[in-house]
Design a protein around this nucleic acid. Structure first.
Lengths: 250, 250
DNA sequence: AAGCAGAGTGTACGTTGTACACGGCACTAG
DNA sequence: CTAGTGCCGTGTACAACGTACACTCTGCTT
């Protein structure tokens, strides 16, 4: 499969699936491999996503997968863009509704495929599905008179918040699926831990605990999203916006 | 080392280092193992943190580590709480300054130890250092007349934002350290990718690109933190606060 | 003097991604 | 009709990982 090559993933993601090899000679296909891999990851997380496991669910040998994908890294790129393809583009309209829509689309994507948040995003090849969704999000904040770098910052802030809260959700969900033990049961089993949560050591936490603050938690996503959008509104409707440039490259 | 036991990590983290075995018979110690592991992870990320590698930097064999730490999972718990120990407690004072302090402490912790954000937080045993820091953060928002679950939500929102933006930073930094290739060089090498970024397909992104929006990016942390705190301020100073409860358990 | 407990070692196993050489099939060129 | 060519799926093999287990060696307690 095309050997090693800096641009393998680019072609895989952006180019129209080659010339579908007019004869349906192959029993397996790239799409089927990607689909099976997503199914495995959905059910058991990235940790369980091995080439052997994917092949097994398809009823082929491990090495057969390498006829259709160059390697695991590129398979992940394809999986990520495939699930972006399941989301809807943000429709044109007022900025706040648009950003909320964008956030909710990502949120449901993360809920359906929590393994997305177990992956590094650094140097992952962006695919066309992810990019067109982001482009649509840029569009709804493009008519507010913001500078281009402010447009990027606004959309990025929303994305980063959703990824942040999504990650804790995802880790919880996947831990439950992998172990079969519910979050509550697991923490209850750690009986020796709670003995150390004394009012002298952790006054606020024990107070919050005894007044029931942990029994009726607020929805982290809903609460946080409202706050972030409020904060962006303050910025967007301000007269003179402060400029905060990045100082270092990292 | 105490075999398998649900509460191994609890004792390791919360109990005062056992009875230091009156004779300093051991050349190695738990603290030295943890310290060496942190150094390896700092320099090369979690991917390079193997028991063999840690032992090697200490000049011992792999299996010698297991005399001092029950296993890799518990070693990670110890590493995490050790770096929390390097941060300062949020001092009492006005809520906004306090939350900003808390956010900046976490931010510098993440910058110094980016591997923290490569780790799952789900079901990681919390240690005393992390918990007392969080307790101090709760304290600064505890006098605002918020309900206990709102206190939790406010502090959590800040934490989740910092973790979200921190993660992209961390992934970038670690990728550079591991590969020795700068982010910019890496993306420039992906020449075939940019050919697909056409104005027809990605109108906003190409426009932002050509107007220099990517050349002078805003600082994601500074920009986002200001927005999040603004949003929390809107909430805190509101007359009647909306209640958003979590509906499901996940 | 005997023996015991704890530190560090060495070997071995199962799991991972994937390189590589191979066998069988379905076309096409002569 | 036959020989050739190239792709599909297979099987074996290897290096790296965490760690179980059975040692050896040392120095203290009886």
């Amino acid at each position: 499969m095309k050997q090693d090559d800096r641009n393998r993933s680019v072609r895989l993601l952006w180019e129209p699936d080659a010339q579908v090899t007019r004869e349906p000679k192959a029993a397996l296909s790239r799409a089927r491999v990607v689909e099976a891999a997503i199914k495995v990851a959905d059910a058991e997380g990235i940790g369980a996503l091995t080439m052997r496991r994917v092949a097994e669910t398809l009823g082929f040998t491990t090495m057969s997968l390498y006829r259709h994908v160059p390697g695991k890294s590129e398979l992940l790129d394809l999986m990520v863009d495939a699930v972006w393809g399941e989301t809807e583009h943000t429709p044109k309209g007022p900025w706040r509704a648009g950003l909320e829509f964008y956030a909710r689309q990502m949120w449901s994507m993360y809920r359906a495929h929590p393994w997305l948040l177990q992956l590094t995003n650094a140097r992952r090849m962006p695919g066309p599905n992810a990019m067109t969704r982001q482009d649509a999000a840029f569009a709804v904040v493009s008519e507010l008179g913001l500078k281009p770098e402010e447009i990027v910052a606004v959309v990025t802030t929303v994305g980063q918040f959703v990824a942040g809260v999504g990650r804790t959700m995802a880790d919880r969900v996947l831990a439950e699926r992998e172990t079969g033990v519910s979050e509550e049961d697991w923490w209850n089993d750690r009986d020796e831990l709670w003995e150390h949560f004394t009012p002298e050591r952790l006054p606020m936490m024990t107070h919050i605990w005894t007044t029931g603050g942990y029994e009726r938690p607020l929805d982290e996503f809903e609460f946080g999203l409202a706050r972030v959008l409020d904060g962006l509104e303050v910025f967007i409707s301000a007269e003179d916006r402060p400029v905060v440039r990045r100082e270092t490259c990292l």
